[in-house]
Nucleic acid binder design. Structure first.
Lengths: 196, 196
DNA sequence: CTTGTTTCAGAACAATCGTTCTGTTTCAAT
DNA sequence: ATTGAAACAGAACGATTGTTCTGAAACAAG
């Protein structure tokens, strides 16, 4: 009896993610979302209940669509510095392909724009950062030789998280990828020396 | 004949900076500025002409009030890794004193929130980043020994800029300063090894 | 004190926001 | 074909935004 839906919550969040990622939360209007997703206001409010809830749903889609494909190799058992390096290169290459200055990291953008005013977003950001921390630690352990110092691994993982966050942040204002690429290479080299 | 002014453009921008720094550009309303600065709408528009112009003026005040006092030691001839380390510690300590999660870096916040939509802000951010790059390069040169490799110095300065940017970004969501402080120490140690 | 200029306090404005609501259209089951 | 539930398009709403405007208050010079 009912009319068939033209979208699923998944596809709606996917399209919304692209808009939020590029323009941020505040600069994205409900009209922008209707136009970009092709879904009526009624449909958006029916599926998610509002702009903020849709934004929160985008975090999960971003994990599945962007973070996991790029970061899974770092999280795999047996990963090493090469996988961390490939992760950096993958993201810089993607930013370069989309044109610099680019959209950066969706989570990092949300962290500075909305996390201070929104505990729910702050929680999502914390979960994302923890995932990166664990992934980096996993890859650093393999590169640490036979007797890894867990204390040092945790610290270097934190350092890698700081560096990765800085990379996405700078990619929002950089005109060229050269500097970022060289910085990433130098950072990998530094990690290598710290582990030996 | 005229009534005496209760403020100067400098003091007005100083007070506005505190508000923008904590809440960001979009989340700060004109009413917030009037309340926080004690200056009427008429006064604000008379001195600067609008919200955006006042925001741009805050960049210059931020340089004078925050960046220069913390970063001048790094820019001084003869500075070395110790000055870079002190700069990190200075900023982390300040963030800790203000309570974490903190406001981070005013420029870095503006870079992610408004730079994508505003060429003027993008220009200000680029100038700030260039200043940091030059400062880091200056301090790295002194630590590089008798025959510094300018090519490598420039790359490491870029790496330091990426790391510093990541530090401020993470300080906006971190609950404790411990991780940041350890990461900074590790990064300094890594720079030391890269230079030798 | 008077005067003239400037600041101040707040009302008023148009525009835009997120959200809600009202018909109309669509489609599957009968 | 009829029917009814659900999605659609878009108007409408209240709230809030940045900006402009108006009248009253304040201060220094004469």
């Amino acid at each position: 009896m009912p009319r068939t839906k033209s979208h699923t919550p998944h596809s709606l969040a996917d399209d919304a993610l692209a808009v939020f990622w590029n323009a941020g939360f505040g600069a994205t209007s409900m009209d922008d979302l209707v136009r970009a997703t092709g879904v009526s206001r009624h449909g958006i409010y029916g599926d998610f209940g509002g702009k903020r809830a849709l934004f929160l749903a985008c975090f999960d889609r971003y994990q599945d669509l962007v973070v996991t494909p790029a970061f899974a190799a770092v999280e795999r058992p047996g990963a090493g510095l090469a996988e961390i390096s490939a992760y950096f290169e993958h993201q810089i290459g993607a930013a370069e392909a989309l044109g610099l200055p680019g959209p950066g990291c969706f989570v990092a953008n949300a962290a500075t724009e909305v996390a201070p005013h929104d505990a729910g977003v702050r929680e999502k950001v914390a979960q994302h950062n923890d995932r990166l921390r664990r992934g980096f630690a996993n890859a650093l352990r393999a590169g640490a030789g036979p007797a890894p110092d867990d204390r040092m691994i945790a610290r270097l993982a934190e350092t890698a998280l700081v560096f990765a966050t800085g990379l996405w942040s700078l990619s929002r204002v950089a005109d060229t990828a050269g500097g970022l690429r060289q910085a990433a290479a130098d950072f990998i080299a530094a990690l290598e020396r710290m582990l030996s």
